[in-house]
Amino acid sequence: MPLPYLRRLSSPPSRGADLEQQQKNRKTVRRLVLVAVGMFGFGFALWPLYNVLCEVTGLGGRAIQVTDSTEQVVASDRTVNIRFDATVNSSLPWKFQAKEKLTEYNLGVPNTALYLAMNPDDDAITGQASYNVTPPEASLYFVKTECFCFTEQTLQAGESREMPVYFYIKPDLPEHIKDITLSYTFYRLGYEPSTGMAHH
């Protein structure tokens, strides 16, 4: 490559840009590059921020507390209806349902809900469940002591299993909440979504 090309790229054109001007421009560029880099970081910071927001508001069931002890809970005579919902992701061939769809529950009383999962496939499959609670506000008062969703679950070919959830709801649940839905979705673990759907 002839030298003038390189020179053109490597040294700033002198027209209209004296030293003072160049320094001003450099300062502007430095600041704006910082903003751009900062905003790239902000994009990633949205991930923890999003989780914090979910925990504060109870959105996405992320505020559900996990504990070992139920000792300090005081039972109340107030009751709420709890619906138990079960969904299976399309990648998992299991059958999955709640044993009891609806129950009337006494606040503050440790309780057990049973789910039933069955693997009709010819191979053992491992799945894991995610969970959610609506209304979101209720998840701030929802406490689980043990749940099948805490660990991976492997079902052998044709195996079916009862899967329990041990939980209680704190008695200081806001008065306006009368109905709560606890929902689980089972996903297949180690599953790669099919690629190249373009080709049938």
């Binding site: 751009a36 880099v37 905003m39 790239f40 970081g41 902000f42 994009g43 990633f44 949205l46």
Partner: peptide
């Protein structure tokens, strides 16, 4: 302000 967020 926003192109870097899309990039992220």
């Amino acid at each position: 302000a926003v192109m870097p967020v899309l990039a992220g």
